[in-house]
Design a protein around this nucleic acid. Structure first.
Length: 777
DNA sequence: CAGTGAGCGAGCTTCCGCTTGACTT
């Protein structure tokens, strides 16, 4: 038995560190927190000074048992969890749960996983910092109280199973408010003027822009007409040097943003792939808010850059973390070995690794040197001479880090014109080929993507590297937010072209407002948000987290008592909770859209138990109202009377088939035909408002044919047991339950015997049971 | 899976932050 037990948080880290230490050391992982607040009584005894009630969750019992055994046998236990608030608490929980003897327990910390750093840490042990632990307990308990007192208010006032919390509710607020900004936005337009010039000396075409945009078509036209007879000369050429500097190496948040922009990954996908790379030893830890690189990494990067690109490309840079909330327990995300330019593996592994390698290497490379050139072009005309065209270009004099990597941007930039310009001089006469004045519209703020929301949350200091991806997933799972594509709509714009001394005007169309993988608030998301903002503005304030973080810092420094902090928070908060439960109305979001054009009855929208719906008021008190659910993509806030009237056109009866009626309606999963008891989805290319009897019969017959082909086999021994063909190949079905068939038997599924089928069912049922047992916790 | 939308009122839902697991109807 080893004399020393070292406990770290991550098993991959444990493996690496064990290699650095001698055989006297066993290194084990505790897999993060080993204790959490109990569910009972919200896990906090509020009357007794916010005394936390901790318990070891089921899935951690085994880890704890093993560590207990090893700790007992060891002479010294080294608690080596991360050096931040959460890490300190993990060490404390370990000491408590493993009942470690103070005399044989040592707390050590290190910021990088290198041999010298670990050895140095071992030489400088300390004791657990109880103030830091208390700051974590305050954080944990505050989050529990906020979440577990706020959520039940929503169950009572809005809908069951909803949730609210310090982080998720603010994330939803950002999306709701952005959507309203976009709805309220009125696009303004102006005419942008671009000229194409021809330089006869070099026989080269280039573009130049008029810095001023014209408000009206009339002004644009007048300008073009003034240019008809004008000549254009180079007034002056300005050249000035410029430079570009590489971006800092990746943190969790910047990795998520860049993988989203350049690789189209969701934040969850980025984290899953990064985890794989980390476990395979290719990259350093992927949940970090630090841009710091170890001395070892700086040197390795320098060596690699000098070897691969030359000395002049290397520049050692140290980056400082600007984010206020950063806790710097780790390094930035970087390749473990810089000499590994690429890795083997499937597409996404390789692509993410490439991105990380390039970004890290580029961060240690020299600036790119540029030369920026602006050509001022004078307009020789009596009426337009006060204006000038500008042609700008950028030439790279020294590539520097651009040889490897350029950071992406969130803005969709309009046709950039930074090309190479001809070598012209003041006084040169230019030939004007064409001048175009195009109507351009201003744009509303962009909708959030998953990654740009993470960026915003990080700026506000809300959430942590380990929670960005889960938070994004939670607000979607609760139905507050959806990630969707939206088709745009067509919009007309004017374009004026001056060519061959003639100005021609045409009306063109462009598509605007199309979105891909953007976050949209749902009606329930907006309603919950408005309710929380109205009653709990303190919690919903964008600076709430930043403010409580300040207090947690004071607790960590020993300047404040954690129970005092919680007492001061809880009093007014709990009072508001009680008051809201007593006084607030149920939330329905009811809104009147207008009246029915025939009957004159009022039409309203509101939130019901099954989602948002429109209703036509009943003509008399004895009668029931007419209802219709809103369709996917429609929102209570923006639904028009016309759209609501369309909803009431369903269901349509479209004639008989086999002696019974067919009904067309739109359900939760889109339009369908109902015939007898069966439902048949209407394909996308058909319009449910137009579909006729003949076409509906086709749809029904097609589905029946597919269903018939679905059945591979029925067993004589048990006619309830079938082999069916599904999306992922053959599977077994008995009653309402489905069972897996091993891949090896997919080819000849028709030959499966009854005995084999029973065997497959047992195996597949056992796997299912195991999973369910775990999921329950 | 797909229609519903009142009030019979059991028992349930829920937070944030630290880690990976063992699954793929």
């Amino acid at each position: 038995m080893a004399k020393n037990l070292v406990i770290v948080e991550s098993p991959a880290k444990a493996k690496t560190i064990e290699g650095f230490l001698g055989s006297d050391f066993t290194v084990k992982s505790c897999y993060g927190h080993i204790r959490d607040l109990a569910k009972e009584h919200n896990g906090v005894d509020i009357e007794n000074g916010f005394k936390p009630i901790y318990q070891v969750p089921d899935d951690k019992k085994q880890v704890v048992a093993e560590l207990k055994k090893l700790a007992k046998a060891a002479e010294v236990v080294w608690l080596a969890s991360d050096e931040d608030r959460e890490g300190e608490a993990i060490s404390w929980h370990l000491a408590e749960v493993l009942k470690l003897d103070h005399s044989k327990t040592k707390r050590i910390v290190f910021h990088e996983i290198t041999k010298p750093a670990i050895l140095k840490a071992i030489e400088n042990p300390r004791i657990i910092n109880q103030d830091l632990v208390n700051a974590q307990q305050a954080r944990r308990i505050l989050d529990r109280i906020v979440g577990f007192e706020l959520s039940p208010v929503l169950w009572k006032k809005v809908k069951p199973s909803l949730s609210a919390g310090r982080v998720q509710s603010v994330a939803v607020r950002l999306i709701v408010e952005r959507e309203r900004e976009i709805t309220d936005f009125n696009a303004d337009s102006a005419f942008r003027v671009i000229a194409i010039f021809h330089d006869t000396k070099e026989n080269k075409h280039f573009r130049a822009e008029l810095p001023k945009r014209f408000k009206t078509e009339g002004e644009a036209k007048a300008f073009l007409e003034a240019c008809t007879a004008a000549d254009f000369t180079v007034d002056r050429v300005e050249t000035k040097p410029g430079k570009r500097t590489p971006a800092a190496p990746f943190t969790t948040s910047t990795l998520q943003q860049e993988a989203s922009r350049k690789l189209g990954f969701s934040v969850a996908q980025t984290m899953a792939v990064a985890q794989k790379l980390y476990e395979a030893g290719h990259i350093t830890y992927m949940r970090t808010d630090s841009v710091n690189l170890s001395e070892l990494a700086l040197n390795a990067a320098k060596d690699e850059i000098e070897k691969a690109y030359g000395k002049e490309f290397s520049k050692t840079r140290k980056y400082n973390t600007k984010t206020a909330s950063a806790q710097e327990a780790h390094e930035a995300i970087r390749p473990t070995y810089f000499d590994k330019h690429s890795i083997a593996g499937d597409g996404s592994d390789k692509r993410l690794y490439d991105l990380i390698w390039k970004r890290s290497i580029a961060s240690q490379m020299s600036d790119a040197a540029l030369e920026k050139t602006v050509i001022h072009i004078a307009i020789g005309s009596s009426t337009a001479s006060e204006k000038e065209f500008l042609a700008s270009g950028e030439v790279i004099k020294f590539e520097g880090f651009l040889k490897v990597y350029l950071e992406g941007t969130d803005e969709e930039n309009e046709d950039a014109d930074d090309g190479l310009l001809p070598d012209v001089k003041a006084g040169d006469l230019l030939q004007m080929e064409r001048i175009t004045a195009t109507e351009k519209f201003t744009r509303a703020a962009p909708r959030y993507t998953e990654a740009s929301l993470v960026k915003k949350l990080e700026e506000l200091g809300i959430g942590r590297p380990s929670t960005y991806a889960p938070t994004i997933s939670t607000i979607q799972k609760r139905g507050y937010v959806v990630k969707e594509d939206r088709v745009g709509r067509e919009r007309n714009y004017q374009e004026l072209i001056l060519q061959n001394a003639k100005v021609e005007t045409s009306t063109l169309t462009e598509n605007t407002g199309a979105e891909k993988s953007k976050l949209f608030p749902t009606d329930i998301g907006s309603l919950v948000n408005d309710f929380l903002v109205e009653h709990f503005d303190g919690i919903m304030d964008y600076s709430f987290t930043a403010n409580v973080e300040k207090e947690f810092d004071e607790i960590a420094e020993g300047l404040k008592s954690w129970t005092d902090m919680l007492t001061k928070f809880y009093g007014p908060f709990h009072k508001t909770v009680d008051k809201t439960i007593d006084e607030a109305d149920r939330v329905t979001g009811e809104r009147e859209l207008g009246t029915h054009p025939v009957s004159g009855l009022p039409i309203t929208v509101r939130m019901g138990r099954y989602g948002p719906f429109a209703q036509i008021a009943p003509p008399s008190e004895e009668e029931k109202p007419t209802y219709a659910s809103l369709r996917a993509g429609q929102s209570m806030e923006t639904l028009t009377l016309e759209e609501a009237l369309d909803l009431f056109k369903m269901p349509r009866m479209i004639g008989d088939f086999e002696g019974t009626e067919m009904k067309v309606a739109i359900g939760r999963f889109g339009p369908y035909v109902q015939h007898q008891k069966a439902f048949y989805s209407i394909p996308k290319e058909d319009d449910p408002y137009q579909i006729n009897q003949e076409r509906a019969i086709e749809v029904i017959l097609a589905k029946r044919k597919a269903d018939a082909e679905k059945l591979i086999k029925v067993f004589d021994e048990d006619t309830d047991l079938q082999v069916l063909n599904g999306r992922w190949g053959p599977y077994l079905k008995k009653g309402k339950d489905n069972f897996k068939i091993p891949k090896a038997r997919h080819e000849d599924a028709i030959k499966i015997t009854y005995e084999e089928a029973v065997d497959f069912m047992e195996k597949s049922a056992a796997a299912l049971k195991g999973r369910r047992g775990k999921a329950k916790k």
